[in-house]
Structure formats: C-alpha cells, structure tokens
C-alpha cells in the first residue's frame, strides 16, 4: 500500500495513535471493576477520550495511505508494527499502578500536545487543539489521585510509591527521539527533547506534594518507538484483534 506523505510523518502519527489506543484499551479494562462507582465512570470517560483521540490520528494516517481505514492499524498489525511507548502497555495491576502510569504519561502528553499546537503541521494542530482540553482534565485527575494515594494511608503510600519506582524506568523513552521524532523536530518544530525539563519539574512538584520520593539512578528502558515491545503488548493485541483474526475480512 502506497503512503502519500513522508513515511516519517506517517510514523509519527502512528506513534501518537498507538499511544492513545493502547492506554485507552488498558484503562477500559477497568470498566465494571473500579474501586467505587463514581471512579468506574471517571475511568471510562478517560478511556473514551484516549480511544477517541486514537481514532482521529488513525483516520489521519489512513488518509495518507491507499486502502487503509482507521481499523487497519489497530487490528491488522502485529506487535512489531506498534509504535506506542512501553509504559502504556503495562498492565493495570491495581488502582495505584494504573494512576501512576497515567500520571507520568498525562504530564508528558500535555506538553507534547502544547508543542504540536505551536508547530507548523495543520492537521495535527487541529487534533491536538481538541485533545488538549481532555488531557488537561486527565492531568488534574491523575495528579489529584497521586496526592490522595501518596498522602492517604500508610498502605496507599507504600503501594503507590512501589508503582512509581516500578514505572519510572519507562519514562526515559518519552524523550529519546525516534527517526520520526527527529524528522518532526526538523520539519515542523515539534521537539520532544525540549519538554523534558518542564516534565521533570511538574512531576517532581506533584510527587513532593504527594509525599512520594522521586526514583534515583534509573536505567531507562526503550524500544516502543521502534516496535521492540515488552511481552505484555502481544497479549493485549491477542484480545484486541481476536474477532478480526478469527473472522477476517468481514464488516462488523
């Protein structure tokens, strides 16, 4: 299938799309299992935001590729084709891990969207301008919860600190530019390296208020942006793609 745009731009769009889809999918697993009804509803709203954003990006990617639709990318690629950040494919485990995963990512996501809005790519700017309103809410939601869990009970403090320690090593990848990121920095002025400092500052402020410690001396994991994933993504896709694999080429 021919792609009618720079392949690196196409890849960058898929990075954004896959991030949104994989995180949305994970959060949607909470539906029906939340700690309290109100939070069940809140998590489903956030999952819907992410999957909605994924659809906008996939549709944009599909508009550049012959014969592709928004469903071609999520349902027909294997693990190696996915470009999402490793952090986002991590399992939910418990509410603390789930919120920590969102917290690290939401703070990054917001700054990334800001950079896209200030960039020179019209179609991406349009999507980002819509998405950032939702993400502003995500940031507030996840950082409020970091404070409640971090500065809640002894048990909650320990649990969420464990999650912070476990997930921090997946955050370095946010700022390691892929070929697509480098292209976007050069051509459209979207520079992920430049938001790292602000991200660190924001993270630290919230962690401190949450009485949580910032992990030290971390060896950062990477691979998501080049499709070298953890073992967890394959299982996620097995579920996500099950119908399309069992009954290929049909309308649903």
């Amino acid at each position: 299938m021919a792609i009618h745009c720079n392949p690196l731009l196409h890849q960058f769009i898929l990075q954004l799309a896959d991030n949104a889809l994989v995180l949305g999918h994970r959060i949607s697993e909470w539906c029906g299992h939340g700690p309290v009804l109100e939070q069940d509803i809140a998590l489903a709203n956030i999952a819907l935001d992410h999957i909605g954003q994924a659809r906008m990006y996939y549709q944009l990617a599909a508009s550049f590729e012959d014969g592709a639709t928004e469903d071609s990318y999520p349902y027909q690629r294997d693990v190696r084709g996915f470009r999402n950040l490793l952090l986002l494919e991590m399992e939910n485990k418990d509410f603390g891990y789930t919120l920590t995963r969102s917290f690290f990512y939401d703070q990054f996501h917001y700054l990334l969207l800001e950079a896209i809005i200030q960039s020179d790519h019209k179609a991406l700017k349009e999507i980002a301008s819509q998405a950032i309103k939702e993400v502003r809410y995500h940031c507030r939601y996840s950082s409020d919860w970091m404070k409640r869990l971090g500065d809640g009970t002894e048990e909650s403090h320990q649990r969420v600190q464990k999650a912070v320690d476990a997930f921090y090593m997946y955050t370095g990848e946010f700022f390691m530019p892929s070929a697509a990121d480098e292209y976007m920095a050069a051509e459209f002025n979207i520079n992920i390296e430049s938001i790292k400092e602000k991200w660190l500052e924001n993270i630290q402020a919230v962690l401190q208020e949450s009485t949580l410690a910032m992990p030290q001396d971390t060896w950062f994991q990477k691979g998501g942006k080049t499709g070298v994933h953890t073992e967890k993504l394959g299982f996620l896709l097995a579920e996500l793609q099950y119908i399309q694999r069992a009954y290929p080429n049909m309308n649903w």
């Binding site: 309290v36 009804l37 109100e38 939070q39 509803i41 809140a42 709203n45 809410y137 507030r140 939601y141 409020d144 409640r148």
Partner: peptide
Amino acid sequence: SLHASDEAMALENARDVYCR
C-alpha cells in the same frame, strides 16, 4: 447526588456522572 471523598473529587465526579 453522588459520593466523593472531597470537594475536588465531587466536582469531577459530577462532571463525569451528570454531564456525559
């Protein structure tokens, strides 16, 4: 009505529950 542990949560929940 709804249940929430604090004001901020109550506002957020109100939005999530009653303004979908």
